[in-house]
Amino acid sequence: MRIILIILLFSLIVLFHELGHFIFAKRSGIGVIEFAVGMGPKVFSIERGGTAYSFRLIPIGGFVAMEGEDGAEAEVEENSFGSKTVWQRMQTIAAGPIFNIILTVILLIPVFFYMGSPTNKIDSVMNNMPAYEVGIKAGDVIEKVNGKTVTNGTEVSEAITAAGNKEMSITLDRDGKTVEVKVTPKEQDGRNMVGIQYVMEKSIFGSIKRAFSATYQMTVRMLQFIGQLFTGNLPMKVTEAVSGPVGVISIVNDASQAGAINVVYVMAVISLNLGILNLLPIPALDGFRILMLIIELLRGGKKFNPEKEGMVNFIGFMLLIGFTIFVTYNDVLKLIK
Results as ranks from 00 to 15, higher is better:
3 I>A: 12
4 I>C: 05
5 L>N: 09
8 L>D: 08
11 S>N: 09
12 L>N: 00
13 I>Q: 06
14 V>L: 13
16 F>R: 03
21 H>G: 05
22 F>C: 10
27 R>Q: 13
28 S>H: 10
29 G>N: 07
30 I>E: 04
31 G>F: 01
33 I>K: 13
38 G>H: 13
42 K>V: 13
46 I>E: 12
47 E>T: 09
47 E>K: 15
49 G>H: 13
49 G>K: 13
52 A>G: 00
54 S>A: 10
57 L>D: 09
61 G>V: 10
62 G>R: 03
66 M>N: 06
67 E>K: 14
68 G>E: 06
70 D>H: 13
77 E>D: 01
77 E>L: 14
86 V>S: 02
89 R>K: 15
89 R>N: 06
91 Q>G: 02
91 Q>L: 02
91 Q>T: 13
95 A>C: 10
100 N>H: 08
103 L>R: 00
106 I>E: 06
109 I>T: 03
109 I>S: 04
111 V>P: 12
117 S>A: 09
118 P>W: 05
121 K>S: 09
121 K>W: 02
121 K>A: 03
124 S>K: 11
125 V>D: 02
130 P>Y: 04
130 P>R: 07
131 A>R: 05
134 V>W: 09
135 G>D: 02
136 I>T: 07
138 A>D: 10
140 D>A: 07
143 E>A: 03
150 V>F: 05
151 T>A: 05
153 G>S: 07
160 I>P: 05
162 A>P: 06
165 N>W: 00
167 E>V: 09
174 R>S: 08
180 E>T: 15
187 E>T: 06
189 D>Q: 11
191 R>E: 14
192 N>R: 01
194 V>P: 05
198 Y>S: 00
198 Y>P: 00
209 K>D: 03
210 R>F: 06
212 F>I: 14
216 Y>I: 15
216 Y>W: 15
216 Y>M: 00
220 V>W: 04
222 M>N: 03
225 F>P: 05
229 L>P: 07
230 F>S: 06
231 T>D: 12
234 L>V: 12
235 P>Y: 11
239 T>D: 12
241 A>W: 10
241 A>H: 04
243 S>N: 14
245 P>V: 13
246 V>F: 11
248 V>L: 15
252 V>C: 12
254 D>Q: 15
255 A>I: 05
259 G>I: 03
260 A>H: 04
262 N>G: 03
266 V>F: 11
266 V>N: 06
268 A>E: 08
269 V>M: 14
270 I>M: 08
276 I>H: 01
277 L>W: 00
278 N>W: 07
282 I>T: 01
288 F>D: 02
288 F>M: 00
291 L>P: 09
300 G>R: 13
306 P>W: 02
310 G>Y: 01
324 T>E: 04
326 F>E: 08
327 V>T: 12
328 T>H: 05
331 D>L: 12
333 L>Y: 00
334 K>Y: 02
336 I>S: 09
336 I>T: 12
